[in-house]
Design a protein around this nucleic acid. Structure first.
Length: 863
RNA sequence: GCGGGCGUGGUGAAAUUGGUAGACACGCAAGAUUUAGGUUCUUGUGGCGCAAGCUGUGGGGGUUCAAGUCCCUCCGCCCGCACCA
């Protein structure tokens, strides 16, 4: 140890962080100017629901976004990095019912405290663009959008089956129904027919599907999930004429028209109009239909349900041969897919086979596997769904499945031309229209007035916004808007007679389907102002949790198209790049039966590894250390970011969530990890003081440390661009190690190189630990702000070495190394390698069988 | 059931996409500094072995001069969808 010890003081994050936050804020450093001519870059994290407190998942999400924002700013982009609040929704109403606080007050108070928490993280956000979706100005625009959609035929009303919670007296979304029971009330959910507002997302099914192909900066996983959700299947609709009945033909949808000769029955959904009609005159059938309805929704019921049916006695004619098929009502046929009716081909569909076996219907195989024997191929308990050749099928015999599908489709379509109405090619999607009506108070009112004489009328534009009333009571269950004494009673805008407002509000997913567009124009009178939106959209980098892979992201993609159709903007995709980050998880502690859960702060720990034990601090009682799982209030395994920021500072928290774990993977929160992160903060500060104490020195451009710094910055740049923050962090550690060892053995003349390398390290650090970097930068005597400094220019000439060390393998095992010029010819390398003693020894006087030289990589000698 | 992903030291993980497996960090061990603890610094740290060396990326097999990476197969874990005709 040759260097004189520099007396260092400890870094005090609390004072330093608030100071720099104030400096940045006073200079409006992160306020975005739409007129700025530089290239635009829009980075957005999924905006939070104002639950009251931020959690470490938010910290991770916003830290990642902030790294990108600060880095892109340093790279010279005009960056938009805004923040807002997804503020409508049930929790506010639940709080109102429980604590007698108005949802509005509850929400805005939560926003105020969460805003304070986010500000303490030192995020480079443009706070002037902040809004909450419950702001009247925001939902005003949303109501206008709704009316535009209505005019364009994108919004419509229809009767539909919904999940109705009789306790809470509201409609529940499918994901709010758990095992057939309401997620909040725990009461058995009923199926009700209600008239609801829908968005015609199905009109965009094909576009939404095609658009996925172009989203190459989205995770494959999310694209695949959306593809499956849209669920395109190509087949045909086939019409079966009734035998001896004067009825319209029975229309079914199939993707397997090639197996038509194997058909042995028809099956209707219990909800099919024909089932309902027949049930009216048949009490047994009516009973069967009612029973089917009682089952249905819950996952368990579906899994275990036996295939059951009811023979209606009706018969239809087979479209391709001279025979008839019985028509059943069956519990496994869904009304809301296809036409609600199917033809059953037991040999090649497991459900149909189970059904046929139960009711003694014929099972005729028509697809023969390549190793099958046409005379002995039998289907007993397991349907054959694999590839093969068509047989037992008249004119289709010998064709492949694909050719048979085509032949049948052609034939039935031709028959249709001839007036026989037999079939048409058809594409079906699993995707359904989006029902947006919710019987709730705390949401965006649907701007419609119902008049007995004129029907539903849009609220005229000059009467917008339809504001939520402030005086509201939550004493009784049901929709408070509907109960309100005066709010809903209005005049019909068309005829002036007494009429009532629509009292349903919109699904909160509507609010989050276009908020990214609202950020682009801070004071826009229209939703987006096309000029601004078009310059900023699509969002260049969107970051959020994978739990929104389907609904939110699909709805937003739909909105981008629908809003473009209504001329609010001109884009099809809202998010050019998407990154789904992993969760922050933590051990959970319980009483052994997972009934009582304990917070980490209540416990002390003893031992290591498998001997590790946890005890209650108060009583000393031992508790069980449970699984590492998602932080949740109910399991009490949450960590409050405020505590971390108060004791270690925001930079430590940011550094911890960016380190170690790849950002798409879950990260385990541990105290040791946080302390490790904090030690690095202190170490950087010590380095800053030691470097500052060096004083000015001459810069030696050819110093080894200079090359290390340029290489590090170069790969950090690539890593941040690819959102591989954990690798960028590792690079910074290596650079810090390089600087430390140069300091330890410094000689006169190095000081300039050390100062320069440390400065570069601070610039690399700035996107991740902005306060610390800024403080160190100022400590080195700089008068400008690091936060507004451009990213350093990388000297390309320092990135490559003149000589490289190549591993030398003999028969694929590493036996030696050799130093050669980086641009050495293959033959020279070969000669040098062959002259090596280790190689000579291995060759034992002979010649090598083969020698492989991969320039800059490796040499392998095969003997 | 269908679809997708993953499996690397005591731990979190790297590996330029077929080219030195374990970068970086945590932990651990030994030593130094400190009044003590923490901090800090140095050295070591996949396993076996005194060593030369051998071995090693869930198991087995294959392709290749060369496999964590590609192919086949089995095992285990995770996620999504789920009677979608």
């Amino acid at each position: 140890m040759t260097s004189a010890k520099v007396q260092t003081e400890r870094y005090n994050p609390q004072a330093v962080e608030t100071n720099w936050q104030k400096v940045w804020n006073d200079k409006d450093l992160f306020k975005t100017d739409n007129a700025d001519p530089r290239e635009k870059y829009y980075v957005l994290e999924m905006f939070p629901y104002p639950s009251g407190r931020i959690h470490v998942g938010h910290v991770r999400n916003y830290a990642m976004g902030d790294v990108v924002a600060r880095f892109k700013r340093a790279k010279g982009f005009n960056v938009l990095h805004p923040m807002g609040w997804d503020a409508f929704g049930m929790p506010a109403e639940n709080a109102a019912m429980k604590n007698k606080v108005h949802p509005k007050d509850w929400t805005y108070e939560n926003i105020a405290s969460m805003r304070g928490q986010l500000k303490s993280m030192g995020l480079s956000l443009d706070w002037t663009r902040e809004f909450a979706t419950c702001d009247v100005a925001y939902y005003h625009q949303q109501q206008k959008l709704f009316l535009d959609f209505l005019k364009a035929g994108i919004a419509y009303r229809k009767k539909s089956k919904v999940n109705w919670d009789p306790e809470d007296q509201t409609v529940l979304a499918n994901e709010q129904v758990i095992d057939g029971k309401g997620w909040r009330s725990g009461v058995e959910v009923e199926q009700r027919e209600l008239t609801q507002w829908f968005f015609k997302i199905t009109d965009y099914a094909e576009e939404l599907l095609k658009g996925l192909e172009g989203l190459n900066r989205w995770p494959d996983k999310v694209r695949l999930m959306q593809k499956n959700w849209i669920g395109k299947s190509e087949g045909m609709s086939v019409r079966f004429a009734f035998d001896g009945e004067d009825r319209d033909p029975l229309e079914i949808f199939t993707t397997r028209q090639d197996t038509l000769f194997g058909a042995s029955f028809m099956a209707l959904s219990p909800d099919h109009p024909l089932s309902k009609e027949l049930a009216e005159g048949n009490t047994d059938l009516a009973e069967f239909v009612a029973e089917c309805r009682r089952h249905g929704t819950s996952v368990v019921a579906v899994e275990t349900a036996e295939k059951r049916g009811f023979d209606t006695g009706l018969r239809v004619k087979h479209p391709l041969e001279d025979r008839t098929l019985p028509v059943y009502v069956a519990n496994f046929v869904l009304m809301d897919y296809g036409t609600g009716a199917i033809f059953g081909c037991p040999a090649h569909d497991q459900r149909d086979l189970d059904f046929a076996n139960k009711y003694g219907l014929p099972v005729t195989p028509v697809v023969l596997p390549s190793d099958g024997d046409a005379h002995n191929f039998k289907i007993l308990e397991e349907a054959y769904t694999g590839p093969g050749t068509i047989f037992n099928s008249d004119f289709l015999n010998g064709l492949s499945i694909e050719d048979a599908k085509k032949t049948v489709a052609d034939k039935l379509e031709k028959a249709q031309l001839a007036g026989a109405q037999q079939g048409t090619r058809q594409v079906n999607y699993r995707l359904r229209d989006w029902g947006i009506s919710r019987q709730r108070y705390w949401g965006c009112p649907i701007p419609i007035i119902h008049c007995d004489a004129c029907g539903p009328q849009p609220v005229p534009e000059d009467q917008l916004p339809v504001e939520l009333p402030g005086d509201i009571d939550f004493e009784k269950p049901g929709n408070p808007l509907d109960r309100h004494a005066s709010w809903k009673h209005v005049e019909c805008p068309a005829c002036g007679k007494d009429a009532v407002r629509e009292t349903d509000t919109m699904d909160t997913f509507v609010d989050s389907s276009w908020y990214f567009a609202r950020f682009t124009a801070p004071d826009a009178p229209t939703p987006t102002q096309p000029d601004d939106a078009n310059g900023w959209l699509p969002v260049n980098q969107y970051i959020g949790g994978v739990e929104h892979a389907i609904l939110h992201l699909l709805y937003s993609r739909f909105f981008a198209r629908a809003m473009s159709q209504c001329e609010h903007m001109e884009i099809s995709e809202p998010f050019e790049g998407l990154f789904t980050q992993g969760m922050v998880v933590h051990e959970a502690y319980h009483d052994g039966q997972e009934r009582i859960w304990y917070a980490p702060a209540e416990l002390r720990f003893e031992g290591e590894g498998s001997d590790r034990k946890a005890f209650l601090v108060d009583s000393g009682q031992e508790v069980s250390i449970g699984k590492i799982e998602k932080m949740s209030k109910s399991k009490r395994n949450t960590v409050d970011p405020d505590d971390i920021i108060r004791s270690y500072g925001a930079d430590t928290a940011r550094w911890f969530v960016l380190s170690d774990s790849p950002p798409e993977r879950d990260v385990i929160w541990t105290d040791a990890g946080v302390e490790g992160a904090h030690r690095f903060v202190q170490r950087v500060w010590r380095l800053a003081q030691e470097v500052a104490a060096l004083g000015e020195g001459t810069s030696a451009a050819d110093h080894a440390l200079t090359a290390i710094a340029h290489k590090a910055l170069n790969s950090i740049e690539t890593d941040i661009d690819g959102l591989r923050f954990n690798r960028a962090v590792a690079q910074i550690y290596e650079l810090a190690n390089g600087i430390s060892s140069s300091l330890a053995k410094k000689s006169d003349g190095d000081t300039g190189a050390i100062r320069d390398a440390f400065g570069m390290m601070l610039q690399a650090l700035a996107p991740m630990m902005p306060h610390l970097a800024e403080e160190c930068w100022a400590h080195l005597g700089h008068s400008d702000l690091l936060a507004s400094r451009p990213w350093p220019t990388i000297d390309e000439s320092l990135l490559s070495e003149d000589t490289v060390t190549l591993p030398v393998q003999i028969n694929g095992k590493r036996r030696a190394e050799i130093s050669v010029a980086a641009d050495a010819a293959k033959s020279d390398v070969e000669a040098a390698v062959l002259a090596m003693p280790a190689v000579q020894k291995a060759l034992d006087g002979g010649a090598p069988k083969k020698i492989i030289v991969v320039p800059g990589r490796i040499v392998n000698v095969v003997v």
